[in-house]
Design a binder for these strands. Structure first.
Length: 498
RNA sequence: GCCCCCAUCGUCUAGUGGCCUAGGACGCCGCCCUCUCACGGCGGUAGCGCGGGUUCGAAUCCCGCUGGGGGUACCA
């Protein structure tokens, strides 16, 4: 029985991050899998902050964890949520457990330093050799407390994901459970807290698998019934190495800052190592929770594919009602993300283009590049686009377009017809004819539907931009001529007129 | 070194002995739609690491190999 029968005590899972400052996407997935298990089994999700290492302990980091979890939908407001507890606050219980283990003869004091051990064994990478096992050392400052592991037999562990791994006890060294200053070490503190919080299922990353036999031995030594374990596959980068803070982009907040919607992130993360079945992928959180089964989690490592994450995000963005999309974009429409002055920004104009932009952004941060020409005094001219669109004939075309724009009815459909007609005069289809206009006005060769954009920009600003483009075209034509007259062929014309 | 985990398209996965001529999604390619780009629609590309077994039958079970990964602290 891996899960309790109906009517028996509810399961209790936990998520136990150490506050390191960033909320890792791997941690996010662990939290999500724990949360899904608890919710779906009618159990409890305990949050425990493992703050025993002073160097990994800043009060504000805890707020970061809480808010990141909140963004993922794991909220204190839910009755499933319990905590947060702080590992440091349970130090007394952990020390008492260590003393009890010593009193019971299940642990002993040791004064071997690493250097002494290496010198004695002549082996740099050896585990502890048991030197102090029978020395009967009493507690004293500087002496570590070691757990006495069995010499024979094997430790069987129940793991929902890995089939049940077996560890020969002979390979388990007498590991330290309390430091020379009496403070408990992770292996012990973690178990004592789990026992204390009556955890029934430990769902965590695969990197903890080697700790499991040691911890299970500790559970037993403490007189508690060991939990059911579930070790999730590690999340890896393109080189198939565990995602690391150093080399990879792992902070959840960085993705949110790019404009990945929390719901998309949750959906994607849930699919890393697990699938809802039925060839379905994009599903609401509640549905994912409903279908989730720890037993169905894969055991092979999973690549964190930002492209697929982005694709999911695009789906979520497009599924948003326009007003929600508009609201979601808001942070990127102001300082420090927006390249325009706050005074130039017009929410009404943005609201008008939002539906056009919605299918064109995969991450929210892309929104500014789509609409910047509407709020900037002058468009940001992409030189590649300029060179591509402003070929021979462009100046003449632009001039003709300008002429009809002066008194055309300022409405998208009419503007389109106008440019179509001018284009025909030049033997160009609309697809070709619109290009110089687009670059003159928006600075780029690709973007939102042009005529709707012009309508929103207004006649005055549109004409000013066309004039500016015409001026630049004239200037570079002169330069080219001048260069010719001077006989200095091969000298490039200035790339930009301003 | 020692311990452990893992192995289906490039990637995430479905698949639990016959339903598999191996399904879906992302990516990529092509076509359609179209004022550009997207969106959308349609089509395509591509995979069971290798070798032995077991079985009437193996992607599915067993063993070995190879290849990846994780752990190995008085960090968590």
């Amino acid at each position: 029985m891996t899960f309790p029968a109906p009517g028996s005590a509810p399961i209790r899972v936990r998520f136990a991050p150490s506050p390191t400052g960033i909320f890792h996407v791997g941690g996010a997935r662990s939290a999500l899998f724990n949360w899904a298990t608890a919710k779906q089994q009618g159990g409890i999700f305990v949050l425990r902050i493992e703050d025993t290492d002073a160097s990994r302990n800043q009060p504000e980091w805890v707020d970061g964890i809480l808010s990141a979890m909140e963004a993922l939908g794991i909220t204190k407001a839910d009755a499933t949520f319990e905590g947060p507890y702080f590992q440091s606050e349970n130090a007394g219980v952990q020390r008492a457990a260590a003393e009890r283990l010593f009193a019971d003869g299940k642990a002993y004091y040791c004064d071997c330093t690493r250097d002494v051990l290496v010198a004695r064994t002549g082996n740099q990478q050896t585990g502890y050799d048991g030197f102090c096992r029978e020395r009967g050392l009493e507690h004293a400052e500087g002496r570590a407390l070691r757990f006495r592991t069995p010499d024979e037999g094997e430790t069987h562990v129940v793991d929902l994901i890995r089939g049940n791994p077996v560890f020969p006890n002979s390979t388990l060294e007498d590991f330290v459970i309390a430091r020379g200053d009496g403070s408990p070490v992770f292996l012990l503190a973690n178990v004592v807290d789990d026992v204390d919080e009556r955890i029934t299922h430990v769902v965590r990353g695969e990197e903890h698998l080697p700790n499991t036999p040691k911890q299970q031995l500790l559970w037993e030594a403490l007189g508690a019934t060991p939990p059911v374990w579930a070790h999730l596959p590690v999340i890896v980068n393109e080189k198939r190495q565990k995602l690391s803070k150093r080399r990879d982009k792992v902070a959840l907040e960085d993705y949110l800052a790019d404009g990945i919607l929390p719901a998309a992130m949750v959906n994607y993360l849930m699919l890393l190592g697990w699938a809802p079945g039925n060839d379905e992928e994009i599903l609401p959180f509640e549905e994912l929770i409903r279908r989730f089964r720890l037993e169905d989690v894969n055991s092979a490592s999973a690549f964190f594919d930002i492209k697929k994450l982005t694709a999911f995000n695009g789906e979520y963005i497009r599924a948003l009602p326009v007003d929600e999309f508009t609201a979601a974009c808001d942070p990127w429409l102001h300082a420090p993300f927006a390249p325009w002055d706050e005074a130039s920004y017009d929410p009404a104009v943005f609201a008008a283009v939002a539906p056009l932009a919605q299918t064109r952004v995969a991450v929210l941060s892309e929104i500014t590049a789509n609409v910047d020409f509407l709020f900037l005094d002058e468009p940001v001219v992409d030189e590649q686009s300029w060179n591509k669109a402003m070929k021979v004939g462009a100046a003449e075309l632009l001039a003709d377009v300008r002429a009809v724009l002066v008194d055309a009815a300022w409405e998208a459909e009419t503007l389109k017809d106008t440019v179509t007609v001018v284009g025909e005069k030049h033997g160009l289809k609309l697809g070709k004819a619109q290009a110089p206009v687009r670059v003159a006005v928006t600075g780029r060769t690709v973007g939102l539907p042009l005529f709707e954009s012009l309508e929103l920009l207004g006649r005055e600003r549109t004409l000013a931009r066309v004039d500016a483009a015409l001026a630049r075209l004239a200037a570079s034509a002169e330069t080219a001529e001048g260069a010719e007259t001077a006989g200095s062929a091969g000298v490039d014309a200035p790339a930009s007129a301003g």
